[in-house]
Write a protein that binds this DNA or RNA. Sequence first.
DNA 1: CTGTTAGCGCGTTCAG
DNA 2: CTGAACGCGCTAACAG
Lengths: 338, 338
Amino acid sequence: MPPTPRRSTILEVARLAGASKTSVSRYFGAERERLSPSLQTRIAHAAGTLGYQPNQMARGLKGGRSKLLGMLVADIRNPFSVAITHGVEQACRQYGFSLIVCNTDNDPEQERQHLDLLGAYQVEGLVVNASGNPERQLHNFISLGTPIVLLDREVDHVEAEVVGLDNHQAIDMALEHLADQGYQAVLYVSEAPEQSSTRQKRLLRFSQTAEQHGLNYTTSLLTDMNGAATLQALSDFLTTHQRHACAVLCGNGNATLIVTRLFQQLGLPLGTVGLMGIDELDWCALVPPGITTLAQPTEAIGKTAVQCLMHRIEPHAALMPKELSFAPTLIERGSTQR
Amino acid sequence: MPPTPRRSTILEVARLAGASKTSVSRYFGAERERLSPSLQTRIAHAAGTLGYQPNQMARGLKGGRSKLLGMLVADIRNPFSVAITHGVEQACRQYGFSLIVCNTDNDPEQERQHLDLLGAYQVEGLVVNASGNPERQLHNFISLGTPIVLLDREVDHVEAEVVGLDNHQAIDMALEHLADQGYQAVLYVSEAPEQSSTRQKRLLRFSQTAEQHGLNYTTSLLTDMNGAATLQALSDFLTTHQRHACAVLCGNGNATLIVTRLFQQLGLPLGTVGLMGIDELDWCALVPPGITTLAQPTEAIGKTAVQCLMHRIEPHAALMPKELSFAPTLIERGSTQR
DNA sequence: CTGTTAGCGCGTTCAG
DNA sequence: CTGAACGCGCTAACAG
């Protein structure tokens, strides 16, 4: 076998099958039916022996159809993001598209670079879980006719479907549950809200409605990975509300992780001091007596995002999903049992 | 703005800059220096106003260089895989390549399809964390001159670098630690080893060397997600070795998760009955008194895999890594403290 | 230093 | 139902 036996081309298949390029092209395209049975078998055979595979690059060049979708993920190491990515990927496959996943590590610069790349590869649609505010580049895609869907986070001045959790409902459900369980004071812990519309919405909703649930409340922002500032906020909170039944509500999975560590550092008994988090994680059931969470329907969110895109790419293949905003599911565990 | 204002082409830039296609091509290629400063600015300006971006598809078509790497991941929802993927991605970026990540969900059929796809997109290299035994297709890539590197799992009859943990060392370290801590009997819990050379190696090594560490031992394979069979095995094990200090060693992160649940179901006191796992997870520190683990250097593994590939794609850009087999790090916690 | 020419592999006319 | 010819956007020779 030669060192680099070039990938075989459509022409070689055609020759070996005693047919023309066009016929082979049709065979691999959407018009296989229109070829005579005899030709079909000849081509199939030839392609088989040569191990031929149409070159997507060349294909895309001609029709402008890359059959590629791009996805921007702010933090791939977040299990929640992974779960959604998984849904997105499944859906892509289903529609016959491939997916280029780009992780930005919450860095706007990487985000810019990745968007350029995705453009260069002619993706036909974009699922964006933004890190910064790449409105400039997103508009670029839009004006080129490339559909975009926003995942979990909005981007200023970019009009596109936003698929994700119903944040108001989530906060409301959490507050209701905590109130029901008899907690009287709640501390809301969130990661820095600047870069994420979702964090902002949850935080705001919390501040606006905690009172209506008859709860005293405070908020604290996580500044570093250790939550040093929040440790302080937490002790202060507990001191201030000594006479109340206290609980902490975590704005997302990462907050839950950090706060759980804090609880252990302070030796707080889970439940007596309530703990609840948005995002369900593998281990929430494992930390005794179990951490109560609000689970997001991640697969559905991912699938829906792709469906939005497909609806605009191939309107006949997918209809516009009716719901873009999803309700969480309450998973009750011991950490909110007094 | 027109509905689909085609992405501008090299020709348009050339015209607007009053230059030729070639010069523009050179400007965006590796020969920018060789253009006169005046031409450079003209092109830069023209490209800027047109928002021009070279089309990678067309580029790849010509030179056969797609600047794309492919990665096959057996299970993207496994945090360990994610961590490695993250390393791979970072390294790609560093070498100016993009990455198409394909998750196979441990399904050989999906694996086949994804390999075809990656071929169709002309990836220049492949990082493979295999689900099945796609030797046929991998050989195809190899004979086409596309370098391959195997991640964590070997594939029968495919000769390629295998990057991953030093499994023997890992098992030895675990056994040594358990013996040191005074445990006398160890149960090894592994996921089904059929599809994974790594699981086989660990299992085998365990069976072969547990005795040398003066330990009684048994093994159990996880059959379903609940570990029903292992629950039985675990009670049997504890009954049999009532008079011994018992411990369980988990072959990977998922096993640790399941076994931890089992411990809770049985009300086993962590530490009194030892528990240790290969793979470090977010929550291992959180389940009191903390679960002892052997952490893999995931970022390093990912980076090394890419480096192998790059060494064969652009020998001048990367040298062959010296070490392909990595040592784990012992993270000692309460679960192995009697 | 710069422009001209010829394809890369394929899909798509448009005749037969 | 089939085949010949053209061009997608770009880079690699090869002039000048």
